[in-house]
Amino acid sequence: MKKLALALAATVVMTAPAMAADVEAGKAKSVMCAACHGANGVSAIPMYPNLAGQKEAYIAKQLKDFKSGTRKDPVMGSMAMPLTDADVANLAAYYASLK
């Protein structure tokens, strides 16, 4: 019984991140990104990357790296700082979903 509960818990934990990605929530959160990365994820400023259609896992990793300081950038470091893991997943799902 204990084993079953553990397995169940593990399953929930493992599938939770995949289920957590909410494109609509990501879109709502993306307002602050739009100034540099464009309203539709296509940047009008050559120094800033397009995000539309970028790989979800890549975007999520970069946001986490900006937040942790593994990838250093004065602008993105402070932008990513307040993001929760759910925000990161939602934003990544939203930008990956754009064409």
Partner: peptide
Amino acid sequence: LPIYPNLAGQHQQY
């Protein structure tokens, strides 16, 4: 591969 970024059409300057 999901963890590697697309590069096509990205800004040259970036």
